[in-house]
Amino acid sequence: MSDVVVRCSGISRTYQEESVPVQALQDVDFEVCKGEFISLAGPSGSGKSTLLNIIGGLDRPDKGDVEVAGVKLNDLNESELSDLRLQKMGFVFQAYNLIPVLSARENVEFIMQLQGVSPAERASRATAVLEQLGVEGMADRRPGELSGGQQQRVAVARAIVTRPVLLLADEPSANLDSATTRELLEMLRTLNETHGVTIVAATHDPIVMSYARRQVNLRDGRIVEDKQNEAA
């Protein structure tokens, strides 16, 4: 019971796309346990991004309950959701991940500043996590001066530096070549295996799926497959 990080029960979500209702999720039940590495796969419009956004507190279901780390998201207002994201979640997006006017180190410290972490602790934690992800040499460069892979590493560093209960990644490999993608995923796997970071990644990249230990497939707003990936 205590190792369940996310519990979604019976969630549905409908969008108005150009005034045509689109059923993105239909009565989905989904649980994430501590220490899992899950890939959410499916074609565009299958609902994987919507599910990820709902878990991350970026979107709300029309129906059903969502619980993250014991907190019922349905009961939270926008500000509380914002604080929840800040304190419990780590996000990695496909692009525009970093604030362009801040250096890599400042981007990592940024989120801790929002949390109100003391300067000394911020500095040491940022150094540690940048070292851990192998980008300590780039600490003072701005995103524009980093390669795509380096940018994503910094983004991951920023996402995990707050020690979130959940690391959410939305198409993290979209702008990367396959070699860089593998490097990134090796790193995520290390984080998952040695540091116990729970990861949920929405993707349609087979490489990403191959690294996940649990593969969830969606189609037309429903989970059509949910299996352990023995190969990973």
Partner: peptide
């Protein structure tokens, strides 16, 4: 499971507001 919200309010310390200042300044030169 407890129904109370476990989130502690975010401390908006000086550092956080100084951050707005710094990002604002740098954005000017983008």
């Amino acid at each position: 499971m407890s129904e109370t919200i476990v989130l502690e309010p975010v401390a908006e310390d000086r550092a956080a507001s100084l951050l707005s200042v710094r990002i604002g300044w740098r954005n000017l030169w983008r």
